[in-house]
Amino acid sequence: MPRHPRLAAVVTATAALGALAAGPASAGDPAVTDPRVVAHFDFAAGETPENIALEPDGSADLTFAFAHRVVRVTRQGVTTPVATLPDVPGGHSPVGGPVASGIARAHDGTLYVNYVTGTKETGVWRIAPGGGAPEQIGFFPADSFPNGLALDEKCDTLYAADTGLGRVWSLPVTGGEPTVWATGAALEPTVEIPFGANGLKVHHGAVWVSNTAQSTLLRIPVREDRTAGPIETRATGLNFIDDFAFTGHGDTVLAALIMDDTLELVRPDGTHKPVLTAADGLDNPTSAAVRAKSVYVPSAAYFTTPDPDPNLLLARISKNKL
Rank of each mutant, 00 (worst) to 15 (best):
A301Y: 00
A197M: 01
A235T: 09
P306A: 12
L282C: 13
S144F: 14
F240P: 03
V295Y: 05
P89E: 04
R75L: 05
Y112I: 00
L85C: 12
G102P: 15
R69L: 05
N239Q: 10
G199Y: 01
T110W: 11
G175Q: 03
E177V: 15
D34R: 12
A255M: 08
P35L: 01
Y112V: 03
D29P: 02
G281E: 01
T271R: 13
W125Q: 07
G250R: 06
R72F: 05
V207C: 03
Y159M: 03
T183C: 07
I103L: 09
N198Y: 09
M259S: 08
L218D: 00
R316Y: 00
S299A: 02
M1Y: 15
R267K: 13
D280N: 09
S170Y: 05
L171V: 01
V113M: 11
T236R: 14
A228V: 01
L151S: 02
L62S: 02
V180H: 09
G18H: 05
T277M: 00
L200P: 06
R3Q: 09
D242A: 06
L20P: 03
I231D: 08
I241M: 05
Y302A: 03
I317P: 01
R3I: 08
G250E: 01
H203T: 08
D143T: 03
T33Y: 13
A19V: 03
S101W: 09
D283L: 04
T79L: 10
L254V: 05
D162V: 12
G23C: 09
L7Y: 14
S144M: 11
L187A: 01
F139S: 11
I317T: 08
E121K: 15
A288R: 06
T277A: 02
P221I: 07
L151W: 04
P189L: 07
I241G: 02
N284W: 05
R167N: 10
T286S: 15
G164C: 00
V266A: 06
A186M: 02
S210R: 06
A206I: 12
K319W: 13
F41R: 00
P134A: 06
P194D: 07
I241Y: 06
K321Y: 07
E153W: 04
T271F: 12
R234T: 09
